[in-house]
Simulated scan of single mutants.
Amino acid sequence: MAALRTISVLACTAVFTVGCATNPQTGEREAGKTATYGGLGALAGAAVGALASKDDRGKGALIGAAVGGAAGAGYGYYVDKQEAQLRQSMQGTGVDVQRQGDQLSLVMPGNITFATNSSEITSGFYSTLNTVAKSLQQYDKSLVDVIGHTDSVGSYDYNLQLSQRRAQSVLNYLAGQGVAYNRLTARGMGPSQPIADNTSDAGRAQNRRVEIKLAPLPNTQY
């Protein structure tokens, strides 16, 4: 019974340890989806570790919980690391790194990516895309969806085609920098998904953007 109580205490401690993630922006510890999966993995790992370590069940539980927590966190833990790297490398570039659940997105304002009515990437943005490509190569277990958006000025069909060409330009550049082509998709949404009011200059500027959304590759172990 004493050994079981020790295992329980150590397992709970390990759950608490792996069940918190550090917010890259604030530096504070907080619970999240990664924490939930990690906590469940820690419980399972603690049980296995305790059974495997006959001489010191308490120590075995702690080790098993740590390993199980990392494995249980899965894609969420994987994205945590890439998010931290991208937030650091994108500082000062004008690219906004966004996180919603396990989906990581890079939002690239149109004014730093393309000239007006053009789908040719501005030369000043090459270095930023080079950094993005390096991250996508290092963290290669994700699908990369490149999505072009425009404001509502002009015809819908023209904007739809322009947004598609812009998304394809970014895709081609990333592929040229070594990102596997079979991970990449490009699509244009035109003005159909505004994030700001199209009646103002500031709002239209926000709507002109390219987004890179990352999602887990199917049938992949993380």
Rank of each mutant, 00 (worst) to 15 (best):
A133K: 10
A115Y: 09
D157N: 10
V95E: 06
T131W: 01
Q98F: 03
S119Y: 14
M108L: 15
T150F: 00
R99I: 13
D102R: 09
G101W: 07
T150Y: 00
Q100H: 11
D157R: 06
L106G: 12
Q137R: 15
V95W: 09
L104A: 10
N111D: 15
S105T: 15
Q138E: 13
S155V: 01
S135G: 07
P109I: 06
G148N: 05
V107T: 14
V97Y: 09
Y139E: 07
Q98R: 14
T122P: 00
T113M: 15
T113F: 11
Q100R: 14
D157Y: 04
Y156Q: 11
Q138M: 11
L106K: 10
E120H: 09
D96R: 13
I121D: 10
N159P: 02
G101P: 03
V144H: 06
T116E: 15
V144L: 03
I112N: 10
N130Y: 11
S123Q: 12
T150K: 05
V95P: 04
Y139G: 09
T150D: 01
V153C: 00
G94C: 08
R99P: 01
Q98Y: 10
V144C: 07
V107N: 12
S123N: 13
E120L: 08
L106H: 06
N111P: 00
F125A: 14
I121E: 09
S118W: 03
K141E: 06
D151T: 01
L106V: 04
N159D: 01
D151W: 00
V107Q: 12
V132G: 06
G101L: 08
S152K: 03
G124F: 08
L129Q: 06
S142M: 14
N117P: 00
D151S: 05
G101I: 05
V153Y: 01
S118Q: 13
T116A: 13
G148Y: 02
T131E: 13
T116Y: 11
